[in-house]
Design a protein around this nucleic acid. Sequence first.
DNA 1: TTGATGTATAGACTATACTCTATACTTGTA
DNA 2: TACAAGTATAGAGTATAGTCTATACATCAA
Lengths: 120, 120
Amino acid sequence: MLINELSKRTGVTIHTLRYYENLGLIKGNTDETVKSNTYKQYDEILVETLSWIIASKKAGFSLAEINTLLQEWFDEKLTLSAKVEIVDKKINEVDLKIKQLKEVKKFLLEAKKDVEKGLC
Amino acid sequence: MLINELSKRTGVTIHTLRYYENLGLIKGNTDETVKSNTYKQYDEILVETLSWIIASKKAGFSLAEINTLLQEWFDEKLTLSAKVEIVDKKINEVDLKIKQLKEVKKFLLEAKKDVEKGLC
DNA sequence: TTGATGTATAGACTATACTCTATACTTGTA
DNA sequence: TACAAGTATAGAGTATAGTCTATACATCAA
């Protein structure tokens, strides 16, 4: 699909998609047989990749971190066990973030209790 | 306490503390009776406030969001029920973020399963 | 009392993640 | 075939969150 469709299907603006492509997070391919233009084709799978990128961003991961994981994921030189290790590390990071959010929630619940008791 | 002690007890650099003070997240008070200097005194409670700010930041909230909540929290014009409502809203946001993180984790667990099956 | 260290203010600089503009070429529709 | 809309590239501009530097004055220990 062209960039316009990818944008519409992911909710990510064309500008941002090009920015991501410059960073290496996604990649479109120009059809070499077409000589009249240099329009890039984006693969179906990128819709899924982008939805993961968006979720990861919302979860607080930087584009650099997301990029590193994607590069390692598609790096054919890495062994299966190396990949499993990388993903496991990321899962631990996610678990840590969840723990931190639960801390924040605890703070908020205490604050709520205080205000209900009229302490604030 | 002076800014140096606040920095050491919170792990936040003096520069960043001053940046936060400019934004209004924290506030030190110069002792009017002391004429020789304009050193600011920071209250004990700020150690706790800052640990909450740090946790909230790690959890993905912006300084602007954190600031808004703090301002509302110490706004004496707000009724108790208004404050409870504000905190409840924030708790919902935290729950949403936890949900998003669990989504990311699901993605990662699926990816791990795929790689273990040799699909990648 | 002098020199290292601490504090305050203002402003410059940096990194991240966009967001927009300019320019140029292409495509599709009336 | 004219022209609006789409695509590509490069580069400028913006917002957020620091981070650092310069300048000036204060404090404290030797």
